[in-house]
Design a protein around this nucleic acid. Structure first.
Lengths: 170, 170
DNA sequence: TTGGAAAGTCAACAAGGCTGACTTAAAACA
DNA sequence: TGTTTTAAGTCAGCCTTGTTGACTTTCCAA
């Protein structure tokens, strides 16, 4: 209700956005939007017998080709057993290549093959289409706000990962 | 970071925010932010032996007390068998009450008990704390943009659910 | 009175998380 | 040199949460 500094007062619009009601709408918006956000890739993945776990692995391997398994693990926040199951099928299917490290031979460096890149493009393009439509309908100012709020919502560790990517522009 | 808003170049603002690079950042922001968004409730749920499925059921029953199972099903987008498993444990644990419909006795109307409401409050408060912090750090304009983009990202069906809630203000 | 909708249940299965224990290879260290 | 630590991978088993399919019960409405 009227927490956060008296949202009920007239002219207090600068605070109104912090009412529990507003926050609840933001929470629900996240829930519904995330469903839409994953819907298109999910459909593509299904035709191949893959799931979201495969998508995540593909996305992050593409983002930084040649990264080690440990790096990927930190990004995904799952156990190596869990990742390994997914990674094994991607390697068997020829979408991912695992190369022994040149300097440190314990490490495996992960790369997308041409097939892997093709799937990555089709998945991310599906997501970009939706994102592009949302961006267009909301406008540039809204997009800036969108990214600002999302960034502030991340856990610090994840935010660092996100920001690291920001700098390494294509 | 000269491109926090995505459109640093003068004049090109209306198009620059639609580059694939910008879209990719938006996609990744969604991914990381959603992890943060669910982290706090997940921790609370774990202590009770519940999962996200229980959280979702509790959230939507609270949102519209007395709704039928079918309504809830449409909102959650899962099968009734899947929902039923979750619902059964919540009823057994005394967090949800299921009342036979007065007019149509086939229907079951779902309500949160006092215990259920207490858990709902603790879950949503955890989420609100994070959301509030994100909102504060991003500012009112960013929040408006955030909600606009999320809404545009939803599937039309889900958007209707979201907007329906919007009107039924507390 | 009967067809069909709403709800619930049982069984079986799959994806994708998890823990724990263990191996192998190689690097790092003392 | 020999020992410890690290990176990766594997096996086994468990849990949650999603799925399909088949079926029953209840009961409204044509």
């Amino acid at each position: 209700m009227a927490e956060g500094g008296g949202a009920a007062s007239p002219g207090g619009e600068s605070l109104l956005f912090l009412t529990d009601e507003q926050l609840r709408k933001g929470i629900e918006a996240m829930f519904f939007a995330y469903r839409g956000f994953t819907a298109d890739p999910d459909r593509i993945l299904e035709t191949r017998g893959y799931g979201r776990a495969h998508h995540r692995a593909i996305h992050f391997i593409n983002r930084q080709q040649g990264q080690t398994v440990n790096t990927l693990l930190a990004m995904l926040g799952v156990t190596k057993q869990s990742l390994n199951r997914v990674l094994r099928t991607l390697i068997e299917d020829g979408l991912v290549e695992s190369r022994v490290g040149r300097k440190d031979k314990r490490e495996r460096h992960l790369f997308l093959t041409e097939d892997g890149k093709a799937l990555e493009r089709s998945l991310s393009e599906a997501q970009r289409v939706r994102m592009r439509a949302a961006y267009r309908s909301a406008g540039p100012a809204a997009v800036a706000g969108f990214r600002q709020v999302l960034e502030a919502m991340m856990d610090p560790d994840l935010r660092r990962h996100y920001q690291a990517m920001k700098d390494s522009g294509t």
